[in-house]
Computed example of a mutant assay.
Amino acid sequence: MDKIDYKKVYSMLYKASAKKAAVVDIPTLQFIAIRGEGEPGSDLFTQSIQALYGIAYTISMSHANDDLQIPNFQRFVCPPLEGHWSTINGAEYDGVDQSVFEWELRIMMPEFVSEKYFEKARSIVSAKKNNPKFDEVALITRESKKHCVMMHIGSFDTEIKTFKTMETYVKENGYRRKSRDHEEIYLSDFRRVSSDKLKTVLAFEVGE
């Protein structure tokens, strides 16, 4: 049986164009998520990512685990890591001081993953691996919203150019950016791919 690939199911999001911005309706989805503050290269940030993937892979492989048999389970490809980025108390980011960052890291989960089985998966993986961040991971729901999206290819440090293109598109098409917060979907493993080849979907919420 083929696995569900949510990058194909929600292609309007995961396959955003690198040449042109677009406004899309993102449906209500659920995620496993963890919040934090400070530099994205910190040990806490890394531990948070490891905790998310530990739980996500435990759930995605639950069909092979007698202790975690999820009703209505369908095999699926583990979706990519995402991040919601803002600053503490709305502080202005000067391009240098990353300690002002406030973030929520998350990985999308199918509808059949209930709170009960999420907690069971978290318990199973936390018993095997020593990571203090497991207890901070939660199962959340993100309500349907309208976003401007565009693919950014290159270093995270050059995202501002893509955001400017997106903001111009929004204004020219009768929308407005609702806040300075933004979201990123990491289609490349930034630990293994050179910065000039990174593929990241950028998004921010818009209104009319």
Score class of each variant (00 low, 15 high):
2 D>T: 15
2 D>V: 08
5 D>P: 08
13 L>S: 06
14 Y>H: 09
22 A>R: 10
32 I>G: 01
34 I>V: 15
37 E>R: 10
39 E>M: 04
43 D>T: 13
43 D>F: 10
47 Q>K: 14
48 S>C: 08
49 I>Y: 00
59 I>K: 09
61 M>P: 06
65 N>I: 10
65 N>C: 14
73 F>T: 13
73 F>N: 04
76 F>A: 13
78 C>V: 15
82 E>I: 04
82 E>N: 06
98 Q>G: 02
100 V>M: 01
101 F>K: 03
102 E>H: 15
104 E>L: 02
104 E>M: 13
104 E>C: 08
107 I>P: 04
109 M>K: 06
110 P>G: 11
112 F>P: 07
113 V>L: 04
115 E>Y: 15
115 E>D: 14
117 Y>N: 09
123 S>L: 09
124 I>F: 07
130 N>I: 11
132 P>V: 10
133 K>A: 09
140 I>G: 05
142 R>E: 09
142 R>K: 15
143 E>F: 12
144 S>T: 11
145 K>N: 05
147 H>A: 09
152 H>C: 06
152 H>V: 04
152 H>W: 08
156 F>R: 07
158 T>L: 07
160 I>P: 02
160 I>R: 13
163 F>H: 11
168 T>P: 05
170 V>N: 00
175 Y>T: 03
177 R>K: 14
183 E>F: 02
183 E>K: 14
187 L>K: 06
195 S>K: 13
198 L>G: 10
200 T>W: 00
205 E>T: 10
205 E>I: 07
